[in-house]
Write a protein that binds this DNA or RNA. Structure first.
Lengths: 195, 195
DNA sequence: ACCTGAACACCGTTCAAGT
DNA sequence: ACCTGAACACCGTTCAAGT
């Protein structure tokens, strides 16, 4: 599986073919199919393998729940951005053990923090949605400089049609990390209000 | 383009090949390439073509900004779910005119509602992230009943490892629409707090 | 200006056959 | 139990050639 991740890192999602993976593995032609059902399974395994989370060591001091949530979610996003193919793999993938582990942890933190049981699932899915959307978006904007230039050019050409987003420089603002954590703060404010 | 959307609706993302599309179009073999650069462009066009938004007719009464935002975003999500392939197409796609139009509208509503300029882009991207994450997730869980059964089975088998999400039935809760709008409310609460 | 078909360089997957 | 290579049924894209 490590080899599949290497290949995806190096060549992107289109670069992984069963034939090339077999090659890279040194093993001859099609022996892969003895170990794995099909290409989908390879993607499932690669995705989950990249999402392992190790909680930071507990110091004696009481941790605050917001900090814990933020830490885990920022790590989640960072893990996926380290392997940009993982974002485009996300749709239609199974939930592997590492993903389930993160959801479990998130549940525990939030319910310990006093989020009502009735709101818990909504809160978790909201955070999930936020992280997944942010990651998918971020990865898809991380294109070549050429592409960025083209997008910028097109937008200024169309500035009469989209005056507001042109003025606020919505598409040019490149502080992705800052936007991510500030938006997360907004969301957590929303949860905290219902506690 | 309508034909491409039909084909995607009928057969999913894997069902669209340049050859089959040409066939369906009645046109012979490879004449597509005179009209379009490559397959990527076909996907770009298909995605945007499905995201047109018509604002609801303005009654004389003053509309509330939360209602407008919720309406547009729920329509956005619904449009994508009507064409499930659009969710998996989202990563790495260009922003077409319909998408830009929605972002422009959102900007206008929020800034009219009094969201500070400094918070505007963060708010918009947060909502974007939320909608995209929710849609991608929803579409990917809408698998065959077989798949759902397998997932459920696996989770109960692993209930010792994931007690909290097992207890809250996180993965079985099927009120997606309700979760979407309740989570959206949380977010808007967060924005309103900063006004 | 628009369409065509053959051709090239790939794919995923199966399967009989090997050790 | 594990690997192999040939074979099948596809792909996206190019390009010389047609109207």
């Amino acid at each position: 599986m490590a080899t599949a991740v290497e290949l995806l890192d190096a060549e992107g999602i289109g670069g992984l073919s069963m034939r090339r993976l077999a090659d890279r593995l040194g093993s001859g032609a099609m022996s892969l199919y003895w170990h794995v059902d099909n290409k989908e399974k390879v993607f499932d395994l690669a995705l989950d393998s990249v999402l392992e989370y190790r909680e930071p060591p507990q110091t004696g001091e009481p941790r605050n729940w917001r900090g814990e949530v933020v830490h885990m979610l920022e790590d989640w996003r960072a893990s996926m951005l380290r392997h940009p193919w993982s974002a485009s793999l996300l749709p239609r993938r199974a939930l592997g053990p590492n993903i389930l582990g993160r959801l479990e942890l998130l549940s525990k933190i939030l319910s310990r923090a006093g989020v009502a049981d009735a709101d818990l699932n909504v809160a978790i899915w909201s955070l999930w949605n936020y992280v997944m959307g942010a990651t998918v978006t971020r990865a898809s904007f991380e294109l070549s400089d050429d592409d960025r230039a083209v997008a910028q050019q097109r937008l200024t050409r169309l500035s009469e049609s989209y005056p507001t987003i042109e003025r606020s420089r919505l598409l040019l603002d490149s502080d992705w990390d800052g936007a991510f954590s500030r938006g997360l703060d907004f969301m957590l404010d929303g949860f905290a209000a219902r506690q």
